[in-house]
Design a protein around this nucleic acid. Sequence first.
DNA 1: TTGTACGCGTTATCAC
DNA 2: GTGATAACGCGTACAA
Lengths: 331, 331
Amino acid sequence: MSEKNLTIRDIARLSGVSKSTVSRIISNTGYVKEATREKVENVINELGYTPNVSAKELSLSRSDTIGIFIGDISNQYFQEILRGAESVISDSSFFPFICLAGTEKRQKLYIEELMKRRVAGVIFSSSFIYDEEAISALVNSTKAISVQTDIKGIPNIDIDNYSAAYSIGRLIAGNGHKKIGYIDSYNTIHSLSERLRGFRDALKDSGLNEDSLIYTVTDSNYLAFDAARDLLKDRSITAIQCANDHISSNVYSVINEMGLKIPDDVSLSGFDGLPLNDLIQPKLTSVKQPLYDMGQMAAKKLIELIETGETGKEDLILDYTLIEGQSVLKK
Amino acid sequence: MSEKNLTIRDIARLSGVSKSTVSRIISNTGYVKEATREKVENVINELGYTPNVSAKELSLSRSDTIGIFIGDISNQYFQEILRGAESVISDSSFFPFICLAGTEKRQKLYIEELMKRRVAGVIFSSSFIYDEEAISALVNSTKAISVQTDIKGIPNIDIDNYSAAYSIGRLIAGNGHKKIGYIDSYNTIHSLSERLRGFRDALKDSGLNEDSLIYTVTDSNYLAFDAARDLLKDRSITAIQCANDHISSNVYSVINEMGLKIPDDVSLSGFDGLPLNDLIQPKLTSVKQPLYDMGQMAAKKLIELIETGETGKEDLILDYTLIEGQSVLKK
DNA sequence: TTGTACGCGTTATCAC
DNA sequence: GTGATAACGCGTACAA
């Protein structure tokens, strides 16, 4: 059975060698005679010795931990990015340290902890940054990268939000809708304003005037129930575009609750292409972002930055896919 | 700007005191003159000094980290438990270390890491344990608790699965269904076998014979598509009960895909009461488990164990709620 | 190929 | 109140 608090010294003593030899065997570095290695490894296995990470990190003045800073874990959007990033990191020589930074208090806590742990790098994915100063201090003390998140001075992984939103706007207008509700997110990040800009331009280029877009936003809880109910009161609105699929799934619930039919009574479309869209009937028109890939890409790029020692400034833009479902009526 | 590798010694030197004094101030322990404290704190803030966790842990021979060992993060079931556990831990003096242990490789990696980090405790929530020996070693080296998970020798948080499944079985049979498909999970944990047992007994007590339950299981990917298609070929089956809502949501997709109507063509019911059920039309009949609470309870109980030094053996059973939606036809 | 000695940054135990 | 000093467990020159 594994006893507690075994140290490298115990192993050394019990196998009749010095600490350094044990260290060499554990970290698999330097020359060690095969016979010695076997002897020591036997002792290690028998006693169930496990090296102490804190001591190792302290000794090396370095940690191989990478922080993954996630905004809201109950949102599938962030889950996908997290899964992608984690998969790459847990498959590397680094170690993922997941931070569920969904509230102001948690952001503070986790940022502090990441600093205290001297992490090798951080991946940010959050639609809101509460304390820019703290983030800035963290970013300055380590390597960092973001996924669709606004943080100054670090590379960002994203898609071309303007162009994606433009496409879906053209699609909806092209289907003959003339009065279109738009439910934006309460959060104010660049990718969201780009989507709105792209959507607006699409309507304009389709010959619709400015009044054709009825703009609303979700409340601070990041839900969309009230916004949706407001829009649905105006029966001249024939289509609703949501800034992301977290919102569109909530709007879907409201529409069902009110006994309305999609797309006959109202058209619905979103942005993200989350897995939960599979539960929506009829199939939702949306823009699919490669979220898992974006997470993976962020992790790969970050590891590269750590290993090369470079800082990296250039953003990476990945491809999106327009998904045409049956949720937007052709008039 | 925060410079790297500042130590307690630098702060001491620059504020004209000794390391010990700085340490006292940081850890807020022992007597320090107010004037000294202010002086030192100013230096700390100006330089942006952050204490080094590894050194602290090493010095104390103790870590205040609690591991949260989660089976499958893309399953909302685990998300709820994770969120509950994290909320309690991040609000305590301990720190959450989240392990996405969904694959055999990852379980090995994370268990090893938890041991290396000398964590204060671990919360297990996973429907599969790949290496019982490794888990056992970890459990023996620290405090541990589980949520609806089979690990020997530690307390488990659960509901009365037998009774819950019995209730839903009586409900379905009471609605006149005589041939009922049951889709079990591929995973083999105690709570699942209890559900099956309870459901079986309910049908028996409703006067149905053994042949009335058509048993199938999901495949190793934990999906349910094939199992559902198989069941749906037999048009004499009028209702399908799923062992959990991860399965029922997949079955819902299959039913829609095949153009069948719930509950007219087939009834569907599940187990868990996940948030994503809100997207299912009509409202799904299911058993709601207090998953978030179970996570919270696990964390609270674990912290208690850590602080009292006790091991704890007694399981905790929480209440469930039978949710009667419109997805089971009354015949 | 192996052993010795020092340092990593912090806390705790003593003295003062 | 405050300051030396010895741990904590490990890696790594430098010797041997």
